[in-house]
Write a protein that binds this DNA or RNA. Structure first.
Length: 607
RNA sequence: GCUGGCAUAGCUCAGUUGGCUAGAGCAGUUGAUUUGUAAUCAACAGGCCCGGGGUUCAAAUCCUCGUGCCAGCACCA
């Protein structure tokens, strides 16, 4: 006797989602999956919604040909090709058609055909033939709803009637098969839920996310700007952004000094010969900026390693000197594709918090652990979650295989020996060595690669670096490249979204907004402002000829963490009336208590 | 780089099928007001309508080539 699954839309069998069509064909039983917002139900539903979209597109554009339409983290999409041009305006039309089709309550049927039959069936559909090429099986399944059918692995809903709460969100181009050598198809993204409320909540969440976009907040808070006449990807730091950045830089400077790093600085551009030695010329040249003067070609640095190598080479080194750690807020230039540029997240000129550790093979592990600990201190301070990923040898790489293997093994060993969780990203390494990437999750749940720890045996070999060992023999040091923020630009962009511009006191562009009630209180405001500078706190005096209420409003909207208001009482008693934006409290403190409070808040952060 | 879209005042945006002197709010300046916890009132100023080139009696509006921006792809700190 076969079980009846009344409310089920699919089954869970051995941790696999099996749709009812497949289950009944193969006689599989399992746990019922009901139509709700569980990950399993959403996967099935979104997949079927993608098919419904394809059906709608096919009915509107009869020449449409379809590639693949998977379920992804943010919903689903379908890649396809039509003769007509489709734009954002057409999404509504397609949505409407989807609703019409869903009302027809087509059953979704499944049948199997052999690979040969499939190739015949889709003989004049080059996209389907491409899909078929990627399938190793001898049999494929077809899903059919009404007069629309599609090659698909499933799983699907029993009927299109269950698709009600969905939205098409984006339209864009995508390379066929994710390969930029292929032609570009049209891709439409969408989202679907089991109920109206969830869909609404999702759309609200997206709108909220948009509000904390660092480009929007950066503009509002006057942190940075870009100008057409300056060039794409070249950020301009405005005073408020400059102050924020300076705070970050100075906190980080101290943290490096405590860990034994020496500040150094290499030139902005170096002779191309050096980039040939390092391998950047051959491997990275298309992304570099070059200039020729007096018939000598120079390359603007895309990385700081070569400069630091030259610092290392300045003296003969002994094993007693190691590890040697150099750091630099290194300004680098990389010619990114125009389409890759994105606010502060992807720019063409940026400053890395870069460092290079020259050490012995034996020191690798402890050095990596120290860096990981450094990373942890910083990320925890900002309240970021992060994960580590070991990236191995990429296609384009220098150095021989054995060196690569050894380096990769060293990274894995360091992680294992210290019980640190990690994932592997095959082929994601830098061209000169494998790396551990630190990926942090931002406020909207997007992952960003910031910090990176790269093990490098190649550059020391190419530059013939050495140190004297105990027996006075020449030994090649290992070089560890590392950045923790990655770049100030990207990191500040992420911080902005993370805090939605409500920066905590220790990093905020302005610590205190001072609001004198009347002109007679301006003098005291200035005295307080100066005292704040003495304890390394920045303030802004809101003394414009506006009403008190207006100035409080303006100060509140500027996202300064603390407002103080001073009038006759305060001037007379040498106190301040505090309005704390973070705790949303109002209270009074003596001038001394107030300054101590600010100082404490600034000093409590130490990487 | 690729596909699609967009570009009007410092910012956010109006501007009809091509047609009079291109508008508003905020911000700015000036004046009045001197305020006790989220918008006082008034006046003024502010524009090569992204830049070349073209079509037209006439272009912010149409075409074209750039530049920049947005979404996604591909690439990446």
């Amino acid at each position: 006797m076969r079980k009846l699954y009344l409310d089920a839309i699919a089954l869970k069998h051995n941790d696999e989602i099996i749709d009812l069509q497949t289950a009944s064909a193969l006689g599989i039983e399992g746990e019922p999956i009901e139509l709700d917002n569980s990950p399993e139900a959403l996967e099935v539903m979104r997949h079927s919604t993608a098919h419904l979209m394809a059906q709608a597109i096919k009915s509107l554009y009869t020449n449409a040909k379809f590639f693949v339409g998977p379920v992804v983290k943010e919903g689903f999409y379908y890649d396809f090709k039509v003769d007509e041009e489709i734009g954002t305006a057409d999404l509504k039309k397609i949505e409407k058609q989807m609703i019409n089709l869903a009302k027809k309550k087509f059953e979704i049927e499944r049948y199997e055909i052999s690979m040969e039959e499939a190739k015949l069936k889709f003989g004049n559909d080059e996209l389907k033939l491409d899909v078929l090429k990627r399938i190793p099986d001898s049999k494929v399944s077809i899903y059919k709803q009404g007069d629309f059918e599609d090659l698909c692995r499933g799983p699907h809903l029993p009927s299109v009637r269950n698709i009600r709460f969905f939205k098409l969100t984006k339209i864009a181009g995508a390379y066929r098969g994710g390969d930029s050598k292929n032609e570009m198809l049209t891709r439409i993204y969408g989202i679907a839920f089991a109920d109206k409320e969830s869909l609404k909540a999702h759309m609200t969440m997206l709108a909220e996310a948009e509000k904390r976009d660092h480009r929007k907040i950066g503009n509002e808070m006057k942190l940075f700007t870009f100008r057409e006449e300056v060039g794409a990807g070249f950020p301009i730091w405005l005073p408020a952004g400059g102050r924020l950045r300076a705070r970050l830089e100075s906190l980080l400077f101290k943290a490096h000094r405590k860990r034994g790093y020496e500040p150094v600085r290499g030139p902005e551009m170096l002779k191309s010969e050096l980039w040939k030695t390092s391998g950047h010329y051959q491997n990275y040249g298309e992304n570099m900026y070059f200039t020729s003067i007096d018939e000598v070609e120079f390359g603007v640095k895309p990385m700081n390693c070569v400069g630091h190598i030259k610092v290392y080479e300045d003296e003969l080194r002994s094993y007693r000197d190691l590890p040697i750690k150099y750091f630099e807020y290194g300004v680098v230039h990389r010619h990114e594709f125009t389409g890759a540029l994105h606010g502060l997240f992807r720019v063409r000129e940026f400053t890395q918090d870069d460092a290079h550790i020259f050490c012995t093979v034996e020191q690798i592990e402890e050095q990596i652990i120290e860096v990981v600990d450094f990373v942890d201190k910083i990320m925890t301070t900002f309240g970021f979650e992060y994960k580590m990923m070991i990236s191995t040898k990429p296609e384009k790489a220098v150095g021989d295989a054995i060196v690569w293997e050894k380096s990769e093994a060293a990274l894995v060993a360091a992680m294992k020996a210290n019980n640190l969780p990690y994932e592997i990203d095959e082929g994601g390494g830098a061209f000169y060595g494998p790396k551990i990437d630190i990926k942090i999750t931002d406020a909207i749940g997007r992952e960003w690669q910031c910090g990176t720890i790269q093990l490098d045996n190649n550059l020391p070999a190419r530059f013939e670096l050495e140190y004297n060992g105990e027996e006075n023999e020449k030994i090649q040091p290992v070089m560890i490249h590392r950045a923790i923020l990655g770049s100030f630009e990207r990191f500040i962009g992420i911080l902005t979204e993370h805090y939605a511009g409500e920066f905590p006191m220790f990093i905020a562009p302005t610590q205190v907004a001072i609001i004198p009630i009347a002109d007679t209180h301006k003098e005291y405001a200035k005295i307080l402002s100066d005292k704040l500078i003495d304890i390394n706190a920045d303030s802004m005096i809101y003394d414009k000829n506006d009403s008190l209420n207006k100035r409080i409003r303006t100060a509140e909207k500027s996202r300064v963490p603390m407002l103080i208001i001073i009038g006759d009482e305060e001037v007379e008693g040498r106190t301040v009336a505090i309005r704390d934006r973070v705790s949303r409290e109002q209270y009074n403190l003596s001038e001394e208590e107030f300054l101590t409070l600010i100082q404490t808040k600034l000093n409590e952060v130490n990487f």
